[in-house]
């Protein structure tokens, strides 16, 4: 799933909404689009009229043909993206500053100001300035959002899924401590050899998929800062039977760790070091 932020930078609500409408229309021609709006006035699971949801509950209002509305509590922008990722090709996130995904800034201040860590792929005064033909490739060239669920959903859509009786997965995550008195890890920072790492991962997937009874292999590794408790890497295998699924997941993560040029720096509460220096 490709994630696009849209935020205001001096524009009024009308200009921002027009930009969102035009972008969503264009993306919807290419695939299913999820829209996440951040609105700080939503509280206790309600915004306005019909919903009767109280704190701690989630309400789905279902209509005909699978149409629905929902309200609830306890969902972050990250949670919303995770739930969209299984069946949306695109997500548009409106009103969240310094998003870590490609963004459009709307308003007269858009060209001048930049939020830290943000990648602005278009700075526009209003919908008239949008170059949608340039925007779509810029969005699609960025690293897509993946989750374990979105990778599982993808292998289930395999043309060979009717022969597959097993999905096995591996999730690597940031471990705070390796023993009781270990200094807690705050985050890991991964550096990737751009281009070569992706080639090696693609070649590894292709190689594992040539095994008898293995139909699809998906490898995904995050880069940049990954905090304590967050997921780092996923291996997902669709196979005929459990034996080859388990074996291929194990070989997949082992070979990824051995062969793909990724470098891990560990930052603990006491220290910071490259992991290969501390075998």
């Amino acid at each position: 799933m490709h994630v696009l932020g849209v935020r205001e930078a001096g524009a009024d609500d009308g200009a921002l909404e027009s930009v969102v409408d035009r972008v969503v229309d264009r993306l919807a021609e290419r695939g299913r689009v999820g829209v996440v709006r951040y609105d700080a006035t939503i509280a206790d699971g309600t915004r306005a009229r019909e919903s009767t949801t109280l704190g701690g509950d989630v309400t789905y209002d279902l209509g005909v043909d699978g149409d629905w509305t929902a309200s609830g509590t306890g969902m972050s922008v990250g949670d919303a993206l995770e739930s969209l990722a299984t069946d949306c090709e695109y997500a548009v996130v409106v009103g969240v500053p310094s998003l870590q995904y490609p963004s459009i800034a709307v308003g007269s201040a858009a060209a001048a100001e930049r939020e830290a860590g943000e990648t602005v792929i278009a700075a526009v005064d209003g919908p008239g300035d949008l170059d949608l033909d340039a925007l779509v490739p810029a969005l699609e060239s960025a690293e897509p959002y993946q989750s374990l669920a979105s990778l599982v959903a993808r292998v289930k859509r395999s043309p060979r899924a009717d022969r597959a009786g097993a999905i096995a997965t591996f999730t690597g995550r940031v471990r705070a401590k390796d023993s009781a008195d270990d200094a807690p890890t705050q985050y890991l920072e991964f550096e990737k050899y751009e281009g070569v790492a992706d080639e090696r991962m693609a070649a590894l997937e292709t190689d594992l998929e040539t095994r008898d009874g293995v139909f699809e292999v998906e490898l995904y590794h995050r880069t940049g800062i990954v905090e304590d408790g967050e997921d780092i890497v996923f291996v997902v295998v669709l196979a005929g039977h459990r034996e080859e699924a388990f074996r291929t997941v194990e070989d997949g993560i082992n070979r990824l760790k051995d062969e793909v040029p990724l470098f891990k720096k560990e930052v603990t509460v006491e220290d910071e070091f490259w992991v290969h220096d501390r075998p």
Binding site: Y193, H221, I232, V233, L256, K257, D258, E259, F263
Partner: peptide, 10 residues
């Protein structure tokens, strides 16, 4: 050309 230490992904 690229020069690097042992890889440490995952």
């Amino acid at each position: 050309l690229a020069l690097f230490p042992p890889v440490s992904g995952g």
